[in-house]
Computed example of a mutant assay.
Amino acid sequence: MKVLHIITRLDRGGSADNTLLSCIGQRRRGHEVVLAAGPGLTEESPLRPRAESEGVELVRIPSLVRAVDPLKDWGALRACRRLIREGRFDLVHTHTSKAGILGRLAARLAGRCRVVHTPHGHVFYGYFGPWKTRLFVWAERLMARWTDAIVTLTDREAEEHLALGVGRPSQFVTIFSGIPLPPAKARGGADPARRQALGLPAEGALIGSVGRLDPVKGHGLLIRAFARLGDRHPGARLILIGEGEKGEEYRALARELGIARRVSFLGWRGDVGDLLGELDLFVFPSRNEGMGRAAVEAMAAGLAVVATRTGGLPEVVKDGETGLLVPPGDAAALSAAMDRLLDRPEERRAMGEAGRKLAQAYSAERMCEKIEGLYQRLLAPAAPGLAG
């Protein structure tokens, strides 16, 4: 089987990690796999060494950008069409909204091959203004007609597509975003040496979050909620792992709220798993989330999770069992949930253990098995014709 994956950004985000793990799983099953990505795919790309070491062929498409840019979009469409036509792929699998629109249209123009799309969430709320959102919804409705299967990370994500008239129920397949599960081990105490290396005090609760510093991820809300803890937890520190367009704005917000010395911006790290082991509580404050892969990684590390009740997160974080859910955009509720779990270490630890057990169902290997099964069904000789 020869498969082409197309994604806009091959960065450290959940959609990029998911896509690369899928590619690696397919290579290990003996398939020929090509991964095309936008201008961020350079020699310094953090995921490039692993992709190449696993035999995944990488193709850079400089015009494949996330923002709407008619000139670049036309160039990306032509590049994808040429790649699909010359590559003679059995199946094209697109990822995220922008690459999904251009990639599926290119596959339609290039000729008949099976087409799968994974939105990795959606952009129907929390990302853009009204007119751009309507444009994306219209485009998703059209592209769904030329898609054999739409892979959503949770059932809720499929429901939100269907509610807006995107696709038909028979097109949707729920396949979670898998993670490499860490070895099972009991959570230990704080590591003074690691804390010192990070410029953190040897003691005090650590609250953390992992993700792009973009508006939709809600880190501004988290900083405000953390500030509301005030004198109740003076030794607590907030650790933000990730980078993004709002990084400087969030640093300024922490200074404005008088908590700059208690908020650490660590950027992207290669030792996230070890850092999760240092945290006491994980917080995921997104405004829109397909599944919440980072929340699953935190659960696998034995952490209780405070998250917003949005998108697919309630299917991952079980309220009152593996963590607490709060309304999106509610700083007071987010702060109260953090306060509760910091005050109740036994409840926090019990939730962390329950989350660790639940996370075992989200292995990367199980995800790859499910995707392989989908591909085989679509490519079987008796499979139905192309959608639309």
Rank of each mutant, 00 (worst) to 15 (best):
M1T: 12
K2M: 01
L4D: 06
T8Y: 00
L10G: 06
G13N: 03
D17N: 15
R29D: 09
G30C: 06
V33K: 12
A37Y: 01
E43N: 08
R50G: 08
A51L: 04
E54C: 01
L64Q: 01
R66W: 04
R66L: 14
P70L: 11
L71E: 04
L71Q: 06
K72M: 14
W74D: 06
A79L: 09
R81F: 03
G87M: 02
D90R: 13
K98S: 03
A99H: 00
A99P: 00
G100R: 04
L102W: 00
G103A: 10
R108G: 04
A110M: 07
H117K: 10
T118Y: 13
T118Q: 11
P119F: 10
H120Q: 14
F124L: 03
G126C: 01
F128W: 02
R134Q: 05
V137N: 12
R141W: 03
L142F: 06
T147S: 11
A149I: 05
V151G: 02
T152Q: 04
A158Y: 13
G165R: 07
G165F: 03
G167D: 11
R168L: 00
R168A: 01
P169N: 08
F172M: 09
V173M: 07
G178D: 13
I179N: 09
P180D: 14
L181W: 12
P183K: 02
K185Q: 15
P192Q: 01
P192L: 03
A193Q: 13
Q196K: 13
L198Y: 07
I207Q: 00
G208W: 05
G208T: 10
G208K: 04
V210F: 10
P215D: 04
H219N: 06
I223L: 09
I223Q: 01
L229Q: 12
G230N: 13
G230F: 03
P234H: 05
G235W: 01
E243I: 00
E245V: 13
E245W: 05
K246P: 00
G247K: 13
E249K: 07
R251K: 14
E256I: 04
L266N: 12
G267W: 01
R269K: 06
D271K: 03
V272W: 07
L276C: 02
E278C: 03
L279D: 01
D280A: 09
M291V: 01
G292D: 10
A295F: 12
A298S: 07
L303K: 02
A304I: 09
A307S: 15
T308C: 10
E315G: 05
E315C: 04
D319G: 05
L324H: 04
A331E: 15
A332Y: 09
L334M: 12
M338G: 03
R340H: 15
D343F: 03
P345G: 05
E347S: 11
E353L: 15
G355M: 10
K357T: 13
A359D: 09
E365T: 01
C368T: 11
E369A: 07
K370Y: 09
A380T: 07
A383P: 08
L386C: 08
G388D: 14
